[in-house]
Simulated assay, not measured.
Amino acid sequence: MKLHLYQVDAFTNHLFGGNPAAVIPLDQWISDSLMQRLAMENNLSETVFFVPSSKPDADYDIRWFTPASEINLCGHATLASAYVLFHVMGYSYPAIRFQSKSGILVVTRNLDKISMDFPAWKPEPVTTRPNELAAALGNISITSVHKHRDYLVEVADESIVQLCQPDFTLLKKLGHKIILTAKGNKADFVSRFFAPTVGIDEDPVTGSAHSQLIPYWAEKLGKKTLFARQLSKRGGEIWCEYIGERVTMAGQCVFFMKGEIDL
């Protein structure tokens, strides 16, 4: 069996920036164990698979795997999948409807960007902070902690986010994915994302985290349209909008390579 493999840098306008995703289009699903082994072999934060959908309200079914496990939502790999469909596979319609474990995700062409319609996950305050959280994040001073899927940890300044040096062994023991965020200087807000529990110490740019970040900062800043930066070493930019129960996030992509898997 031969499979096509594409690698795309998402949420960036230059090569070696943003978040690289491995994109593997399929005619029909292969086994879960094989998808997981391919993700482990690719050793990127996510490998994404999609197949033509048999459902009337979807064009493709989509699934995402880290090197360690399947996850329920991934922004950058969805963006990369849409880029491959629009620019490599000749998909000619203006919008793609992906059926996922987080429901229907609609992705559209938007001038030089691709825009994704995702669920809004409004995080709620955590009344009791995990005892080791501050220590696991390098003994930083924490302003507040909220949670939906992941812990959202706000700190007072962008520089704290930029300079944070987590203890990934302690973070893994906590058992949660961590979004570290602050009000931005040149962006509305900035963030970093740590997920050693699913085999990713730090994710370069994380669309799913922005399902929590967008409603959080929209309410805090009193504005619906926001610009965000993720402050990983590779860095990334996301144009955001909060529209009630949904959020939109738009970004650019750069094609890196194509290959063939021989199984």
Rank of each mutant, 00 (worst) to 15 (best):
E41H: 15
L34S: 14
L213H: 00
D59R: 08
P125I: 15
S115L: 14
S69P: 04
D59E: 07
I71R: 02
G138D: 08
N72S: 15
S102M: 01
S144M: 05
S115Q: 13
K224P: 04
S115P: 00
N19V: 11
I140C: 04
F16R: 01
I140E: 04
W121E: 04
L38I: 12
L3Q: 11
G184N: 06
T66E: 03
T197M: 02
E202N: 12
V198G: 01
V8I: 06
Y60L: 06
D150N: 04
K2I: 08
V48E: 10
A218C: 13
E202C: 09
V145E: 13
A134K: 11
R234N: 00
H14P: 14
M257Q: 11
K220Q: 08
V153M: 04
F50Q: 01
L263A: 09
S100A: 05
E237S: 06
P52G: 05
I160P: 00
N139T: 01
I200F: 00
D203M: 13
S191Q: 02
I30V: 10
P204W: 05
P119V: 09
D9H: 13
K224E: 02
P56L: 06
H146L: 07
A228N: 06
G259E: 02
A10S: 08
W239T: 13
Q99L: 10
S31F: 03
D117A: 05
R63T: 04
P125W: 11
L34T: 15
W217K: 04
H4T: 08
E245G: 08
A22R: 02
L5T: 11
M35I: 14
F65R: 04
K220H: 10
I261K: 15
Y242N: 02
G236E: 06
W29I: 07
H210D: 03
S208T: 15
A21Q: 12
F49P: 00
Q7I: 09
F50N: 06
Y60N: 03
S211V: 10
T197W: 00
W121N: 05
G90F: 07
A80G: 08
C164F: 01
M116Q: 01
S100D: 03
R149T: 15
I24H: 13
H176I: 14
T206C: 09
Y93G: 15
F193C: 06
A134L: 10
L163G: 10
Y91T: 01
I214N: 01
A134N: 11
D150E: 09
W217I: 01
L171V: 05
D117K: 07
Y91L: 02
R246C: 04
Q99V: 03
D167Q: 00
I104N: 11
T108F: 11
T127E: 15
V247H: 07
V106H: 15
W64L: 12
I62R: 11
Q252I: 14
T66P: 01
R246E: 02
I214T: 01
T248G: 02
P123N: 09
H4N: 14
G103F: 08
I214M: 05
I179M: 15
